[in-house]
Design a protein around this nucleic acid. Structure first.
Lengths: 252, 252
DNA sequence: TCTCGACCCTGATCCAGGTCAAGCCGCCAA
DNA sequence: TTGGCGGCTTGACCTGGATCAGGGTCGAGA
């Protein structure tokens, strides 16, 4: 499954948590604790598994949902990386985030009752679709499901506010790299070596920078031996240094 | 109740929706539809009213909750204006938002299970305290309560992402003024004339600007006859112009 | 093999907004 | 009445990062 790049280094396989084994996948998913047998009564659990639809593959560039579409479901990324972005009425795009396997997207659509953003596959993507109506019904019956939903929603507020702050390019970049590192680690992937699946321009947009600045900051981090970059492959050499720079942006 | 300022103009009373009449206040509150009799069964409704604690007054500068405190409840602002802000580990403060009567704060504390920010009274403040544990129990019984909570949470994600975008000082300021205008209007106050209860420094911080820049932008808007400013009193003269500037930041 | 286009990097220049400094106003307390 | 203080404004200057311009690399397709 692993392949070797032109310099003879091992490349991790695409981050697809789905190895065909539902239980294993679900253990890495944000709904894990709610979906998996955890003292929950069996029939309710079956209902949850029934309301999940597995969808995919989406090819790079394909849209999982579109801005303005009527809200009906939230999605858990099963494999691949998804980018969410809004286009304002002047046509300017803003990248809201990148979503790794196990993470949930579409929660910001509950209130407006329409998806306020596009969700675009950055590579080959698989998702689980949860009908939101069915999910709320279930949430009323299974406290764990309700609790999980509240927590996911609340966590998204925190994520959104972190980037709203006033920080230098270096701080934002350091925080971004560490955040990806942590999230990959949480899902069972390497924390110090991963692939930046998205183009530089998307990173730049997301961090409110120009893509030129992203290049320069990465260069600077390389020169200081904090990271190693080869195209989109990234290796973190000195996470402590990154942390001293980026900690203002990171959760405690 | 109204008073007259030193130039002989009428000043609106402080925005306190609480006129001593629960039903009237609740009709302007974000929990309104859930709290008020709306075909909900009577005993459940009574439970909701029982779990609400009325707290206040807080004097300007007093804290409703503190960053790091264990999460236990969410709060609806009943009267006055509340500012929420985080202090990062370098001691830099970031103002997350200003909260008017009828708005709910503390939702970002559900996931970390600690308040991630301070909530500070900017003037004389009254709040309703909702024990979150009790509220979730009730949410499982009354679909409307659950729905309201999901919507409030989801809306907060949207609010947080709006400010995370890359915009000029003029755009952010225009959007900020219009947003306050809309929110005051929603709660039954004047939409074209209100008081900026917070100091310029807090506005600046919230919009990721220097307070000098806030002064200059307001000056510019005055020169163009879009607004009138007298100290903290604000009047919107040309909301259409503000909208053409600020619309990129505003919900459709 | 060549070409094309998407993506990335780097250097030169520019500018929005930050920083610094000074002064004003209103308020309170002595 | 004076003085001190916190908040606001204005002007002069500086800078981080945007913008502009040019060139390099790689992969896909002819």
């Amino acid at each position: 499954m692993n392949r070797i790049d032109r310099e003879g280094r091992f490349i991790e396989p695409n981050p697809i948590a789905d190895d065909g084994d539902d239980i294993h996948f679900c253990s890495t998913c944000a709904f894990g604790s709610a979906c998996l047998p955890a003292g929950v009564d069996k029939t309710a659990l079956r209902e949850l598994h029934v309301l999940v639809e597995h969808i995919g593959p989406y090819r790079a560039g394909a849209q999982i949902f579109r801005q303005g579409e009527r809200f009906g479901a939230i999605y858990a990324v099963r494999g691949g990386v998804v980018k969410t972005c809004v286009t304002d009425n002047e046509g300017r795009e803003q990248v809201l985030g990148f979503h790794l396997p196990g993470e949930v997207i579409g929660l910001n659509a509950i209130h407006p009752e329409r998806y306020p953003c596009d969700a675009v596959a950055l590579d080959t993507v698989y998702v689980c679709r949860f009908s939101f109506a069915a999910l709320t019904t279930l949430a009323a019956k299974i406290p764990d499901v309700q609790r999980t939903l509240f927590r996911l929603l609340s966590a998204d507020i925190g994520k959104a506010t972190a980037l709203a702050g006033d920080h230098t390019a270096d701080e934002r970049m350091a925080a971004f790299l560490l955040d990806l590192s942590r999230r990959y680690a949480e899902r069972g992937f390497s924390s110090h070596r991963y692939r930046l699946v998205m183009p530089r321009g998307d990173i730049a947009n997301h961090l409110r920078l120009a893509s030129e600045t992203v290049s320069r900051v990465l260069r600077r981090f390389c020169d200081r031996q904090w990271i190693r970059v080869d195209g989109r492959e990234l290796e973190i050499l000195d996470s402590a240094q990154l942390r001293t720079i980026g900690q203002a942006l990171l959760p405690e």
